[in-house]
């Protein structure tokens, strides 16, 4: 067993003041960070204390539920990795780990390490889709799509909607998230009919919900667990200008 100090952000609600609580815990290298939190939370329950809350579901890096700012970095030290995929060995025997929630005006705090990311759903419902009803679609192979475009579309569609990009950005901009969705549809023929309408609808919603503006620092790309590239933001900006010039 090794020892580490955990500094965990505790805050009852958005309107309460928050502070760190400090805990010295034992761990093994092959434990995941979330398992260390599980053990700590369970030990607090044993003592009759209400444990800190943190979100997770799949623990496989795909659902996007988890997400902590770990020693100042969303999702922690390992590139291309979500919080749930971090194992203690990835911290190389560090003495102290500080855990905080995503901090962004558009993601109000719920409690402790949990924030409200429903703004992402709202952006999606504003236009993050191809308008197609169930039934009456043509045979899937009627529409050949080059492998290059299909692969690109997948790269963009890999976004898990975790919100790390917003958390990393000093302006709390959601451009990487929105850009990735737009780019997925922009490289596919199915996405063309609504392409310009979509960029207007999603970006307007994004602004309305209080996400910031992009100043091209690239912090989002650096923390994205799916390694989505800022090229999607450039694509988004081009389409936005087109839509403004020629109408959606």
């Amino acid at each position: 067993m090794k020892k580490v100090q955990l500094r965990i952000w505790r805050q009852r609600s958005q309107n309460d003041a928050g502070k760190f609580s400090e805990h010295n815990v034992d761990y093994e290298d092959d434990m995941s960070l979330l398992e260390v939190l599980d053990i700590l939370a369970e030990s607090l329950i044993k003592k009759g204390e209400e444990p800190f809350v943190y979100d997770f579901d799949c623990r496989e890096g795909i659902c996007g539920s988890c997400g902590l700012v770990i020693n100042g970095v969303p999702h922690g030290p390992l590139k291309g990795t979500t919080t749930c995929q971090l194992h203690m060995r990835h911290f190389n025997g560090i003495a102290s780990i500080t855990l905080e929630p995503w901090r962004a005006a558009a993601f109000p705090l719920i409690r402790d390490l949990v924030v409200d990311r429903s703004a992402y759903d709202k952006i999606m419902s504003a236009g993050g889709y191809i308008s197609v009803d169930t039934g009456g679609t043509p045979d899937a192979n009627c529409l050949p799509i080059s492998k290059t475009h299909a692969d690109k579309a997948f790269d963009y569609a890999a976004c898990i909607g975790c919100g790390a990009c917003v958390a990393a950005c000093k302006n709390s901009a959601a451009h990487l998230f929105v850009g990735a969705k737009l780019a997925q549809y922009a490289v596919l023929p199915q996405g063309q009919p609504e392409r310009l309408r979509r960029v207007i609808a999603m970006t307007e919603k994004m602004d309305e919900l209080g996400f910031g503006t992009c100043s091209n620092e690239g912090e989002c790309e650096a923390v994205c667990p799916k390694e989505i590239k800022t090229e999607v933001i450039a694509m988004m900006n081009r389409d936005y200008i087109k839509a403004m010039l020629f109408g959606a």
Binding site: Y129, I130, V132, T134, T137, P138, A140, A153, Y185, Q190
Partner: peptide, 10 residues
């Protein structure tokens, strides 16, 4: 067919 129409990148 449905999924491809929705833009699922198979």
């Amino acid at each position: 067919d449905q999924c491809v129409a929705q833009g699922v990148p198979f």
